[in-house]
Amino acid sequence: MASTLVRLPPEQAARALDHYREAVGARRARVVLGVVLLAGAIVLAGIGGEVDIEKFLANSHRLPAYVWNLTPPLALATLGSDLAEWFWNLDGWLLLLGDTLLIAYLGTLLGAVGAFVLCFAASANLEKRLWLRFAARRLLEFCRTVPELVFALLFVMAFGLGALPGVLALAIHTMGALGKLFAEVVENIDMKPVEGAVATGAGRLTSIRFAVLPQVLSNFASYALLRFEINVRSAAVMGFVGAGGIGTDLMVAIRKFYYTDVSAMLLLIIATVMIIDLATEQLRHRLIGLEQRP
Protein backbone atom coordinates (compact mmCIF):
# COMPACT_ATOMS: atom_id res chain seq x y z
CA MET A 1 0.00 0.00 0.00
CA ALA A 2 1.49 3.31 -1.05
CA SER A 3 1.16 6.01 1.55
CA THR A 4 -0.47 9.12 0.19
CA LEU A 5 0.37 12.16 2.24
CA VAL A 6 -1.68 15.16 1.20
CA ARG A 7 0.21 18.41 1.56
CA LEU A 8 -1.88 21.44 2.43
CA PRO A 9 -1.41 24.58 0.37
CA PRO A 10 1.16 26.81 2.17
CA GLU A 11 -1.21 29.60 3.24
CA GLN A 12 -3.73 27.06 4.60
CA ALA A 13 -0.97 25.22 6.47
CA ALA A 14 0.28 28.48 7.96
CA ARG A 15 -3.22 29.32 9.15
CA ALA A 16 -3.68 25.88 10.71
CA LEU A 17 -0.29 26.17 12.41
CA ASP A 18 -1.24 29.58 13.81
CA HIS A 19 -4.45 28.15 15.21
CA TYR A 20 -2.54 25.28 16.75
CA ARG A 21 0.03 27.60 18.34
CA GLU A 22 -2.73 29.79 19.69
CA ALA A 23 -4.60 26.86 21.23
CA VAL A 24 -1.52 25.22 22.71
CA GLY A 25 0.03 28.54 23.74
CA ALA A 26 -2.92 29.48 25.93
CA ARG A 27 -2.87 26.12 27.64
CA ARG A 28 0.88 26.21 28.05
CA ALA A 29 0.71 29.67 29.62
CA ARG A 30 -1.85 28.35 32.09
CA VAL A 31 0.33 25.38 32.99
CA VAL A 32 3.38 27.63 33.48
CA LEU A 33 1.32 29.96 35.68
CA GLY A 34 0.13 26.96 37.71
CA VAL A 35 3.67 25.67 38.16
CA VAL A 36 4.91 29.10 39.28
CA LEU A 37 2.05 29.40 41.81
CA LEU A 38 2.75 25.88 43.07
CA ALA A 39 6.47 26.62 43.44
CA GLY A 40 5.67 29.80 45.35
CA ALA A 41 3.32 27.90 47.65
CA ILE A 42 5.97 25.22 48.23
CA VAL A 43 8.58 27.81 49.22
CA LEU A 44 6.11 29.55 51.56
CA ALA A 45 5.04 26.25 53.10
CA GLY A 46 8.65 25.17 53.44
CA ILE A 47 9.39 28.30 55.45
CA GLY A 48 6.22 27.88 57.51
CA GLY A 49 6.89 24.20 58.12
CA GLU A 50 10.49 24.82 59.20
CA VAL A 51 11.79 22.47 56.52
CA ASP A 52 15.55 22.21 56.81
CA ILE A 53 16.93 20.14 53.93
CA GLU A 54 20.46 20.15 55.36
CA LYS A 55 19.29 18.89 58.72
CA PHE A 56 17.14 16.29 57.01
CA LEU A 57 20.02 15.03 54.87
CA ALA A 58 22.35 14.98 57.86
CA ASN A 59 19.83 12.88 59.82
CA SER A 60 18.33 10.90 56.96
CA HIS A 61 20.44 7.82 57.78
CA ARG A 62 18.41 7.53 60.99
CA LEU A 63 15.22 6.37 59.28
CA PRO A 64 16.70 3.16 57.82
CA ALA A 65 18.51 2.66 61.12
CA TYR A 66 15.19 3.04 62.94
CA VAL A 67 13.50 0.52 60.69
CA TRP A 68 16.48 -1.80 61.15
CA ASN A 69 16.15 -1.49 64.92
CA LEU A 70 12.48 -2.39 64.66
CA THR A 71 13.29 -5.81 63.24
CA PRO A 72 14.02 -8.24 66.07
CA PRO A 73 17.02 -10.60 66.07
CA LEU A 74 15.54 -13.72 64.50
CA ALA A 75 17.73 -16.74 63.85
CA LEU A 76 16.48 -19.84 62.09
CA ALA A 77 18.00 -22.15 64.71
CA THR A 78 16.23 -20.47 67.62
CA LEU A 79 13.18 -19.21 65.75
CA GLY A 80 10.68 -20.40 68.34
CA SER A 81 12.30 -18.75 71.33
CA ASP A 82 13.15 -15.64 69.31
CA LEU A 83 9.52 -15.23 68.34
CA ALA A 84 8.44 -15.88 71.93
CA GLU A 85 10.83 -13.16 73.08
CA TRP A 86 9.65 -10.74 70.41
CA PHE A 87 6.00 -11.25 71.36
CA TRP A 88 6.78 -11.65 75.08
CA ASN A 89 3.62 -9.82 76.13
CA LEU A 90 1.31 -11.37 73.53
CA ASP A 91 -1.52 -12.12 75.99
CA GLY A 92 -1.49 -8.61 77.42
CA TRP A 93 -1.39 -7.03 73.97
CA LEU A 94 -4.19 -9.21 72.66
CA LEU A 95 -6.31 -8.20 75.64
CA LEU A 96 -5.59 -4.53 74.90
CA LEU A 97 -6.41 -5.09 71.23
CA GLY A 98 -9.68 -6.70 72.32
CA ASP A 99 -10.44 -3.61 74.39
CA THR A 100 -9.59 -1.45 71.38
CA LEU A 101 -12.07 -3.41 69.25
CA LEU A 102 -14.73 -3.06 71.96
CA ILE A 103 -14.13 0.71 72.13
CA ALA A 104 -14.56 0.90 68.37
CA TYR A 105 -17.67 -1.29 68.54
CA LEU A 106 -19.39 0.63 71.33
CA GLY A 107 -18.47 3.97 69.76
CA THR A 108 -19.83 2.86 66.39
CA LEU A 109 -23.03 1.46 67.94
CA LEU A 110 -23.80 4.58 69.98
CA GLY A 111 -22.89 6.83 67.07
CA ALA A 112 -25.06 4.83 64.67
CA VAL A 113 -28.02 4.99 67.07
CA GLY A 114 -27.58 8.77 67.37
CA ALA A 115 -27.25 9.13 63.61
CA PHE A 116 -30.37 7.00 63.11
CA VAL A 117 -32.39 9.24 65.41
CA LEU A 118 -31.16 12.44 63.76
CA CYS A 119 -31.04 11.44 60.08
CA PHE A 120 -34.81 11.66 59.51
CA ALA A 121 -34.84 15.20 60.84
CA ALA A 122 -31.94 16.09 58.53
CA SER A 123 -33.42 14.78 55.28
CA ALA A 124 -35.34 17.17 53.05
CA ASN A 125 -38.05 14.73 51.92
CA LEU A 126 -39.24 13.70 55.41
CA GLU A 127 -38.69 16.89 57.39
CA LYS A 128 -40.55 19.90 56.07
CA ARG A 129 -39.79 22.17 59.03
CA LEU A 130 -36.85 24.22 57.77
CA TRP A 131 -35.51 25.28 61.19
CA LEU A 132 -35.39 21.70 62.52
CA ARG A 133 -33.65 20.42 59.39
CA PHE A 134 -31.17 23.27 59.54
CA ALA A 135 -30.45 22.62 63.22
CA ALA A 136 -30.02 18.86 62.72
CA ARG A 137 -27.67 19.36 59.78
CA ARG A 138 -25.50 21.93 61.56
CA LEU A 139 -25.26 19.68 64.63
CA LEU A 140 -24.12 16.72 62.51
CA GLU A 141 -21.65 18.94 60.66
CA PHE A 142 -20.15 20.16 63.93
CA CYS A 143 -19.82 16.60 65.25
CA ARG A 144 -17.92 15.37 62.22
CA THR A 145 -15.71 18.41 61.66
CA VAL A 146 -14.14 18.56 65.12
CA PRO A 147 -11.45 15.85 65.07
CA GLU A 148 -12.28 12.91 67.34
CA LEU A 149 -8.96 13.26 69.14
CA VAL A 150 -9.95 16.78 70.23
CA PHE A 151 -13.18 15.37 71.67
CA ALA A 152 -11.12 12.64 73.34
CA LEU A 153 -8.80 15.22 74.93
CA LEU A 154 -11.79 17.18 76.26
CA PHE A 155 -13.54 14.06 77.54
CA VAL A 156 -10.41 12.79 79.27
CA MET A 157 -10.49 16.02 81.28
CA ALA A 158 -14.19 15.54 82.08
CA PHE A 159 -14.52 11.77 82.56
CA GLY A 160 -11.00 10.90 83.66
CA LEU A 161 -8.53 8.51 82.02
CA GLY A 162 -9.89 5.28 80.58
CA ALA A 163 -11.98 3.85 77.79
CA LEU A 164 -15.14 5.90 78.44
CA PRO A 165 -13.83 9.18 76.91
CA GLY A 166 -12.57 7.21 73.89
CA VAL A 167 -15.95 5.57 73.37
CA LEU A 168 -17.78 8.89 73.63
CA ALA A 169 -15.37 10.71 71.32
CA LEU A 170 -15.77 8.00 68.67
CA ALA A 171 -19.55 7.99 69.18
CA ILE A 172 -19.88 11.73 68.59
CA HIS A 173 -17.67 11.75 65.52
CA THR A 174 -19.44 8.65 64.16
CA MET A 175 -22.82 10.28 64.74
CA GLY A 176 -21.76 13.27 62.62
CA ALA A 177 -20.29 11.22 59.81
CA LEU A 178 -23.02 8.55 59.67
CA GLY A 179 -25.85 11.05 60.17
CA LYS A 180 -24.91 12.79 56.94
CA LEU A 181 -24.65 9.50 55.00
CA PHE A 182 -27.90 8.16 56.49
CA ALA A 183 -29.73 11.37 55.59
CA GLU A 184 -28.47 11.10 52.02
CA VAL A 185 -29.78 7.52 51.84
CA VAL A 186 -33.15 8.64 53.18
CA GLU A 187 -33.32 11.48 50.64
CA ASN A 188 -32.87 8.98 47.81
CA ILE A 189 -35.73 6.64 48.76
CA ASP A 190 -38.79 5.97 46.64
CA MET A 191 -41.53 8.17 48.17
CA LYS A 192 -44.45 6.05 46.89
CA PRO A 193 -44.49 3.60 49.85
CA VAL A 194 -44.45 6.59 52.22
CA GLU A 195 -47.39 8.17 50.41
CA GLY A 196 -49.20 4.82 50.53
CA ALA A 197 -48.64 4.49 54.27
CA VAL A 198 -49.77 8.07 54.90
CA ALA A 199 -52.87 7.48 52.76
CA THR A 200 -53.86 4.55 55.00
CA GLY A 201 -53.62 6.84 58.02
CA ALA A 202 -50.12 6.05 59.26
CA GLY A 203 -48.48 8.60 61.52
CA ARG A 204 -44.89 9.77 61.24
CA LEU A 205 -43.36 6.89 63.21
CA THR A 206 -45.48 4.20 61.55
CA SER A 207 -44.72 5.43 58.07
CA ILE A 208 -40.99 5.54 58.85
CA ARG A 209 -41.15 2.02 60.27
CA PHE A 210 -43.09 0.42 57.41
CA ALA A 211 -42.33 2.58 54.38
CA VAL A 212 -38.85 4.04 54.94
CA LEU A 213 -36.95 1.47 57.03
CA PRO A 214 -37.28 -1.47 54.62
CA GLN A 215 -35.74 0.70 51.90
CA VAL A 216 -32.79 2.04 53.88
CA LEU A 217 -31.85 -0.55 56.51
CA SER A 218 -29.34 -2.53 54.45
CA ASN A 219 -27.60 0.67 53.34
CA PHE A 220 -27.50 1.92 56.92
CA ALA A 221 -25.93 -1.34 58.10
CA SER A 222 -23.39 -1.25 55.29
CA TYR A 223 -22.32 2.32 56.14
CA ALA A 224 -22.15 1.47 59.86
CA LEU A 225 -19.85 -1.48 59.12
CA LEU A 226 -17.62 0.75 56.99
CA ARG A 227 -17.48 3.23 59.86
CA PHE A 228 -16.59 0.42 62.27
CA GLU A 229 -13.56 -0.32 60.09
CA ILE A 230 -12.47 3.31 60.29
CA ASN A 231 -13.14 3.45 64.03
CA VAL A 232 -10.92 0.43 64.72
CA ARG A 233 -8.00 2.44 63.30
CA SER A 234 -8.98 5.50 65.32
CA ALA A 235 -9.47 3.50 68.54
CA ALA A 236 -5.91 2.20 68.22
CA VAL A 237 -4.57 5.75 68.68
CA MET A 238 -7.10 6.96 71.27
CA GLY A 239 -4.65 5.77 73.93
CA PHE A 240 -2.21 8.49 72.82
CA VAL A 241 -4.28 10.98 74.81
CA GLY A 242 -5.18 8.51 77.56
CA ALA A 243 -8.53 7.39 76.19
CA GLY A 244 -8.06 3.62 76.46
CA GLY A 245 -7.01 0.77 74.19
CA ILE A 246 -3.60 -0.34 72.98
CA GLY A 247 -2.49 3.22 72.09
CA THR A 248 -1.14 4.04 75.56
CA ASP A 249 1.25 1.09 75.54
CA LEU A 250 2.25 1.78 71.95
CA MET A 251 3.07 5.41 72.72
CA VAL A 252 5.11 4.48 75.76
CA ALA A 253 7.02 1.90 73.70
CA ILE A 254 7.74 4.42 70.91
CA ARG A 255 8.77 7.18 73.32
CA LYS A 256 11.07 4.89 75.31
CA PHE A 257 12.62 3.31 72.20
CA TYR A 258 11.50 -0.26 72.99
CA TYR A 259 12.02 -1.05 69.32
CA THR A 260 10.90 -4.69 69.16
CA ASP A 261 7.81 -3.97 71.27
CA VAL A 262 6.87 -1.24 68.80
CA SER A 263 7.17 -3.54 65.81
CA ALA A 264 5.31 -6.36 67.59
CA MET A 265 2.39 -4.08 68.49
CA LEU A 266 2.33 -2.47 65.03
CA LEU A 267 2.21 -5.91 63.41
CA LEU A 268 -0.66 -6.93 65.68
CA ILE A 269 -2.57 -3.72 64.91
CA ILE A 270 -2.03 -4.02 61.16
CA ALA A 271 -3.10 -7.68 61.22
CA THR A 272 -6.23 -6.85 63.24
CA VAL A 273 -7.16 -3.98 60.92
CA MET A 274 -6.72 -6.22 57.86
CA ILE A 275 -8.85 -9.01 59.38
CA ILE A 276 -11.60 -6.54 60.31
CA ASP A 277 -11.47 -5.02 56.82
CA LEU A 278 -11.87 -8.42 55.19
CA ALA A 279 -14.66 -9.53 57.55
CA THR A 280 -16.70 -6.34 57.17
CA GLU A 281 -16.19 -6.41 53.40
CA GLN A 282 -17.71 -9.92 53.30
CA LEU A 283 -20.62 -8.81 55.46
CA ARG A 284 -21.22 -5.73 53.36
CA HIS A 285 -21.27 -7.72 50.14
CA ARG A 286 -23.89 -9.99 51.68
CA LEU A 287 -25.96 -6.99 52.77
CA ILE A 288 -25.83 -5.53 49.27
CA GLY A 289 -26.90 -8.94 47.91
CA LEU A 290 -29.84 -8.93 50.34
CA GLU A 291 -30.96 -5.58 49.04
CA GLN A 292 -30.99 -6.63 45.38
CA ARG A 293 -32.98 -9.86 45.84
CA PRO A 294 -36.58 -8.54 46.04
Binding site: G98, D99, L102, I103, Y105, L106, L109, G162, A163, L164, V167, G244
Partner: peptide, 10 residues
Protein backbone atom coordinates in the same frame (compact mmCIF):
# COMPACT_ATOMS: atom_id res chain seq x y z
CA UNK B 1 -22.47 -3.90 73.88
CA UNK B 2 -22.96 -5.37 77.36
CA UNK B 3 -19.61 -7.15 77.09
CA UNK B 4 -17.99 -3.86 76.06
CA UNK B 5 -19.58 -1.96 78.93
CA UNK B 6 -18.37 -4.59 81.41
CA UNK B 7 -14.82 -4.93 79.97
CA UNK B 8 -14.27 -1.19 79.55
CA UNK B 9 -15.53 -0.37 83.02
CA UNK B 10 -18.14 2.10 81.81
Amino acid sequence: AALAVWRLDV
